[in-house]
Design a binder for these strands. Structure first.
Lengths: 220, 220
DNA sequence: ATTTTTATTTAGCTTTATCTAAATTAATTT
DNA sequence: AAATTAATTTAGATAAAGCTAAATAAAAAT
C-alpha cells in the first residue's frame, strides 16, 4: 500500500498541522496549506482514509493513525537529511534548500537514506534546527521557547526557526542571527514587544516581535 | 514548456534508440523498451510531437529535434552524475545504482546539478564508463570497440559496459573485469567466438562471446 | 494485383489529482 | 427555533498516462 507523491505531501501537511497543536485539522486549513481548493482536499481525505493513514469521519474531522504518523515521519526524515546534505556538502545557503528537498524527499530507496545518513554522520538536526527523526520515527526534540517570550537578562542559544522562507532566512543571515548563536535579552519594549538582544557577546541587534516569534531558543 | 516525468523517460529512450544506430525508431521498439503497449506509445508520440521535442509523422516514424536532443542529454547528464555520486560518495556497488538514479534524474534544479558536478570534481564518465554530457550537452566520447571484436595479441583497457543489469555487473565484479582493467587477448575460439584474456598482467579469464560483446575496450 | 500479415493508430475506458458549481451539513445569530 | 452564514462534501469536468479492442495503413506474400 504505497502512497503517491501527492498523498505523501498531504500526509506530511496533516502531520505538521496536527503537531502544531491544532486539535483538529480542518479541510480549509489543509486547503490553505496545500494551496488547493477545499473540494480537492475532501476528495484526498477520503482516499487517505481508505488507505488507513488517517481516520476520517466526514463533516467531523480527521486524526492521523499510527501508520500515517510513521509514514509522515519517514518523509520528514528524508526531507531533513537532504537539507543537511545540500548545506553541508553542496554549499547551499539555508534559504535555498527547501524546494529541492521537497523533491528529493519523494525518492524511494531505503538503502539510499541509510547510506546518506551515515555519510552525513547521523545528524540530529537539519539546517533550520528541526530534529531529524531516526529510522524508527523517533524524534529527539529539545525544549525550546520563542525568543519573543523571553525576558530581560535571560540568555540562551538560537536552535531553530519556525519560518523557513527564503526572505526570513536571508534577513537572519544579514543580521547574524544564525543557528548556534548565543544571545542575551538586553531590552524589551512593552508597547510593541520588540527586543534588543546581544548576539555572541559582541553585536547589538534590534528585532520586531514578529521576527522574534519565529526564532526558537534553548535557554541557559 | 516543461516535460513530465513520463515524457522525459520516453525522450531518453528515443534518444538512446536513435543513437544506437537505429535509423528510424519504431512504435513497437519504443513500446518494448518502455514496457508499455504500442497504443500508449502512439499517444505519447503525439504529445511529444506537440511539444516539438520530436518531429512525428504518423505511420512514417519520428525524428528527435535539436530541442529534444538537448533535453534528453540533460536528463542523461543528471542520471550519470547521480550514479557517480552513489558509487563514489555513498559506496553503492555499480550494480545497485541504476534504479535510484532513474528517480534522481527527474529532480529539477539547475543549481543542484551544477553543485553536484563540482562536488564530484567534474567527472567525465559514469561508473559504467558512459560519458557524462557537459551542461551544454556536449559529449566527449572515446573511440571504443567491443571486446568480442578484438583479435589475438591485441591489448587495451576496459572503458565501459553495454549492459548495465545487476546480473551482468555482478558477474564482472566476480571475475575482476572492472573498468580500467588492462587486458590482452590470449586466445580466441573460432567455433563459438569465446575468448581467453589476460587481465592486469596476472589473471587468465575465459569469457563467452555474449559477455565479450557487452564489454567496450579502448585499444592500445 | 489481391490477399494476408504486421505495424500503427483511434476510440473508449480507468485512475489520480486537480478544478468549478451545486448541494448539504454544521455553526452562529437573531 | 428559525434563519442565515460558513464549512464541507458531492457531482461532473479536465488532463495525464496507462490499458484493451477495433480500425486502418503499410509491407510482404502469393
Amino acid at each position: 500500500m504505497e502512497l503517491t507523491v501527492a498523498e505523501e505531501n498531504y500526509l506530511k501537511a496533516i502531520y505538521h498541522l496536527s503537531d502544531a497543536g491544532k486539535k483538529s485539522v480542518s479541510t480549509n486549513d489543509l486547503a490553505a496549506e496545500m494551496k488547493n481548493k477545499p473540494a480537492s482536499v475532501s476528495d484526498m481525505l477520503r482516499r487517505l482514509g481508505e488507505k488507513e493513514v488517517i481516520e476520517y469521519r466526514k463533516y467531523y474531522g480527521l486524526q492521523i493513525t499510527e501508520a500515517g504518523k510513521r509514514l509522515a515521519l519517514q518523509t520528514i526524515r528524508k526531507h531533513r537529511l537532504w537539507e543537511v546534505f545540500l548545506v553541508e556538502k553542496l554549499n547551499f545557503a539555508w534559504d535555498e534548500v527547501h524546494e529541492v528537498a521537497e523533491q528529493l524527499e519523494h525518492i524511494h530507496s531505503p538503502l539510499l537514506i541509510q547510506r546518506l545518513d551515515a555519510y552525513l554522520n547521523f545528524p540530529k538536526f537539519d539546517p533550520h534546527g528541526d530534529p531529524i527523526p531516526d529510522e524508527f520515527g523517533d524524534v529527539r526534540s529539545r525544549p525550546r521557547v520563542e525568543l519573543a517570550e523571553m525576558e530581560i537578562n535571560q540568555t540562551g542559544q538560537i536552535v531553530a526557526v519556525k519560518d523557513s522562507s527564503a526572505a526570513f532566512l536571508r534577513y537572519l543571515d544579514k543580521v547574524g542571527a544564525y543557528i548556534g548563536a548565543r544571545i542575551k535579552i538586553l531590552d524589551k519594549v512593552e508597547f510593541d514587544g520588540s527586543l534588543e538582544i546581544l548576539v555572541d557577546q559582541k553585536k547589538n541587534l534590534f528585532m520586531s516581535k514578529e521576527v522574534a516569534g519565529n526564532i526558537l531558543v534553548l535557554q541557559s
